[in-house]
Design a protein around this nucleic acid. Structure first.
Lengths: 225, 225
DNA sequence: ACTTTGAATATTGGATACAATATGCGATAC
DNA sequence: GTATCGCATATTGTATCCAATATTCAAAGT
């Protein structure tokens, strides 16, 4: 029998859908730091009971994206400047390792896709997109790596600071600089020079950290949910 | 008014208690890999409904300790040899950084406590304790560090491999070697030599990785839940 | 006015009830 | 005997309901 079957058992449950949507909203900064997440309100939005909402919130808490207090509910977790700095330090440690591992495994297609994303990022003048384009570029580079666990941790780290990165790209001259650095990293990858790509990436992340810390007060005062 | 008040709002909820107990049972290897976690069974054990059990399982999944399939339930997640190796590589990257950060911040008390744990580990001839004593020694060293996020990630990494580390300590000569290496690391800390402690720790972890990989087939065939 | 108290409301945590799906087993057809 | 089907049971996912706690606000006392 020839059918294009999909594995229905891996279909998303209500709670995982809600988790994904809330996660996205939080990391993109659509819900302001310290905003409460009301179970009832969310349940109504998704036309479900509060049960799957609660499970989604439990997972978000485990990811460090919200903080909950018994009988008081969950609020979006924010970071202090030193905490954000620490997350960047972790990224600066992990992501270069991932990239070094990925470079020798990159296919022609993968490199082409990365270049496309890199160009799109550089060309875009729509601030709303920058965050996505930035992340998708990094993600594409790492996708060739087989360090699943490293990637998982790096993803979580990025989740925690993406909000600030987005705001920083808009406020500062971060966009131009990031574009240039991305091309340099990409070129090292294309040359097959993992060590160089790795070093450039490290500098890229630490540069972003510095820039972020410089603008941190301005970033956290912006409420936008 | 002077009372030794405790913050009751931070009292543990049923779901967090269940989470803690399940987590402990899983990382200590009391529940075998791939064993199913039956919601009803667990709920009965704790005299609760399945609701808090489900929240606990959601969190465990987010931590990578169990895998779930829709309508089929959760099973304890196991690691392949390369996956375990990757987790050790992550530890070898993170924990030395944590220790380097911690060393200059260690109080006399902290060092004394670490030495006590180190001695206890070295002296113990009760295999059941080894895993705990090992972890508590490492934890004490890191406790002086202010890298909360690094520690969080390192903890999760250790959670995922602790089962194997425990088994390996029992099967191989890992115990003796670990004891010696612990003392060397501790001495470097006592001398205030963070770089040296950091290097020794890295070697310690990579040595454990090597030893673990050598024994991996034997470790994973042992079922004990 | 300021503080305190207590009741009304809002919100969360958990239990029970029901729906959807998986699993095991016997019956039937071949 | 083997394969397939269909029902009974087991298990999970979600909705509804109740209990516990937080929050708000008006009333009363000072």
């Amino acid at each position: 029998m020839k059918l294009k079957a999909i594995d229905i058992s891996r279909t998303a449950s209500a709670s995982s859908i809600i988790f994904d949507v809330l996660r996205k909203a939080i990391i993109e900064g659509e819900i302001a730091e310290n905003s409460p997440l009301r179970q009832d309100e969310i349940a109504t939005l998704f036309n479900t009971s509060r049960i799957p909402v609660r499970e989604a919130i439990s997972r978000l808490e485990e990811q460090g994206l919200v903080k909950t207090q018994r009988y008081k509910g969950a609020i979006v977790a924010g970071l202090s400047a030193p905490e954000a700095a620490e997350v960047f330090d972790l990224r600066a440690l992990l992501e270069p390792e991932i990239l070094r591992n990925a470079v020798p495994r990159m296919s022609r297609d993968c490199l082409a896709e990365a270049r496309a994303h890199c160009q799109a990022f550089s060309d875009s003048d729509s601030p709303m997109e920058w965050g996505d384009l930035n992340r998708v570029f990094h993600k594409t580079l790492y996708s060739a790596s087989d360090l699943k666990f490293f990637i998982e941790v790096a993803d979580n780290a990025m989740d925690r600071v993406e909000r600030y990165v987005r705001a920083q790209l808009v406020i500062s001259d971060g966009m131009e600089r990031a574009g240039i650095e991305h091309f340099a990293i990409l070129e090292a990858c294309e040359m097959g020079d993992g060590d160089r790509a790795s070093l450039l990436l490290r500098d890229h992340i630490l540069g972003a950290k510095r820039s972020l810390l410089d603008h941190f007060p301005a970033l956290t005062s912006r409420q936008d949910g």
